[in-house]
Design a protein around this nucleic acid. Structure first.
Lengths: 159, 159
DNA sequence: TGTCAAATTAAAATTATTATCAACCCAAAA
DNA sequence: TTTTGGGTTGATAATAATTTTAATTTGACA
């Protein structure tokens, strides 16, 4: 954990940015919530618990900076807010997402499923791929389980 | 062309919505610009040319309605505006996009490249896929051609 | 023709994000 | 030590996209 902070610190220094207390607090929140896909607002509220004097603008600036340095990924699921993910260290590729249209949960897929697809695109469309975003919208395993229990609202009402 | 409008009209009626003149004008703009990925603002300006009395809010509402009925797709490339695409009729799946990071152009891929990937996701993650979004970010063939011409800013200066 | 729900408009409100700017911190120079 | 200057910060204003509101209009049908 500390070592990751250290590496991020070096990464910042290499571009002559500093790891200020505010930036460190922000990074720590991201580290502690690596599973989630936090919005800027979410991050702000969590940082505020530890460092109540921090400003919203600073969180936005920090997230923007971290995204520029490729320390975090800025993602958009079309729900009106940008979300931020710590990059897996050494991950060459963006991970994929499963967005549940029932409950809104967002799960991640780390595997790179697009190797073959990318080859096709680069060859057939003559497009030099730098990054990709793949998101599936559907029903997650949790909601599917629930649907088994209560097959439909109408059927519940049996005496 | 007219037949597509007719089918959309029926589609609306089937959900007891009407194809009002404003809605029709909006759909026509989308039909006439099927290649592009227009933002709500773009659509508004184009509709206004033909029907100057239309309101921006109406265009938003119409696009929202069309998206709900799956007549158009609402996409977000992370540039701060939602974009709207007529659905290819009968297309089971959302098409894919190539976003050029040099010039910003957005090209489409109609082929469904994800058949195999979807099978893997449905089986391994137990996720019932309803839709998907796949976007590649990279350099389009046009910008690659240009890079050949001027290989780099430094190398130009040979005497 | 009169009625009533649906649809429309302009304006106001909301939401997420960015810009502005004075104050601050800290290290290097004088 | 004092000064200087660049980067950073926090409060707040500004902006941009979108949504909601409230009043008005439209149009299908009794």
């Amino acid at each position: 954990m500390e070592s990751r902070i250290d590496r991020i610190k070096k990464h910042l220094h290499s571009q002559s940015y500093k790891l200020t207390p505010q930036r460190e607090a922000t990074v720590r929140v991201l580290l502690e919530n690596e599973e989630d896909h936090l919005s800027a607002e979410d991050v702000y509220l969590l940082v505020k618990e530890k460092s109540p004097e921090i400003g919203l603008a600073t969180v936005y600036r920090t997230l923007e900076l971290l995204a520029e340095l490729k320390i975090v990924d800025k993602i958009n699921f079309g729900d009106g807010v940008s979300r931020f993910d710590l990059r897996q260290e050494g991950a060459a590729h963006f991970h994929h997402h499963l967005v549940c249209i029932e409950c809104g949960a967002v799960d991640e897929i780390q595997e790179d499923l697009l190797g073959d697809v990318e080859k096709i695109v680069e060859n057939d469309w003559n497009f030099k791929i730098k990054d990709h975003r793949l998101t599936f919208h559907g029903i997650c395993y949790r909601c599917q389980k629930q649907e088994d229990k209560e097959p439909s609202e109408q059927a519940v009402n049996h005496s």
